[in-house]
Amino acid sequence: MAVVAWIGLGNMGGPMTANMVKAGHTVKGFDLSPNALAAAGAHGVEAAASIAAAVQGADVVFTMLPKGDHVRSVYFGEAGILANAATATLLIDSSTIDIDSAQAVHDAAAAAGFRFVDAPVSGGMSGATAGTLTFMIGGESGAVADASGFIEPMSANIIPTGGATTGQAAKICNNLMLFINLASTSEGAVLADRLGLDKQVFWDIASVSSGDSWALRTWYPVAGVVPTSAANNDFAPTFTAELANKDIGLAIAAARSTDTPLEIGEHVQQLFQRLIDGGQGAKDCSMIVSLVDGSLQTGEAAPGPNAAASNQATPGPAASNA
Rank of each mutant, 00 (worst) to 15 (best):
S320K: 08
A322K: 03
V190M: 02
V3L: 04
F179Y: 15
T185K: 03
A54C: 09
A253K: 15
N232H: 06
S50P: 12
A322R: 04
T132I: 11
A86M: 04
L262N: 12
F239G: 10
G188L: 12
V201S: 11
V268F: 02
K246D: 05
L250R: 09
G138C: 07
P34S: 11
D247P: 06
V61F: 05
A42G: 13
D212S: 10
S209L: 00
A48I: 06
S257N: 14
G279S: 11
A319C: 04
T166L: 12
T63R: 04
L191W: 03
A112Y: 10
S295R: 03
D247A: 05
A206D: 02
A5L: 10
V105I: 15
S257C: 01
V201I: 13
A145K: 13
T132H: 09
A255I: 03
F239N: 03
T314S: 09
G41K: 08
E300N: 05
V226L: 04
P160H: 07
A48R: 04
S186V: 04
C173R: 01
A164G: 02
P303V: 10
S33I: 05
A108K: 14
V222S: 00
S310L: 12
V201Q: 11
A18P: 08
D118A: 06
I97K: 07
A156M: 10
Q56W: 01
A42D: 13
G29A: 11
F116E: 03
A88C: 02
T314K: 14
Q297T: 15
I137R: 06
A302K: 13
G123S: 08
F272A: 04
L271Q: 14
S50V: 10
F239S: 04
A38I: 00
V117S: 01
F272C: 05
G14V: 02
S257E: 14
C173Q: 07
N181L: 07
S148V: 01
A53W: 00
R256A: 15
L262T: 15
L82Q: 09
A39M: 12
M177Y: 06
A85N: 10
A36M: 14
D212F: 01
M64E: 03
S95A: 13
G279V: 03
M12A: 10
A83Q: 11
A108F: 06
D212I: 05
K283S: 15
G68M: 07
I205V: 15
G279T: 03
D277I: 02
P120F: 08
L133V: 09
V268T: 07
M125G: 08
A111R: 12
A322P: 04
I97R: 09
T185A: 15
M287P: 00
A241S: 14
R217E: 06
V45Q: 11
V74Y: 00
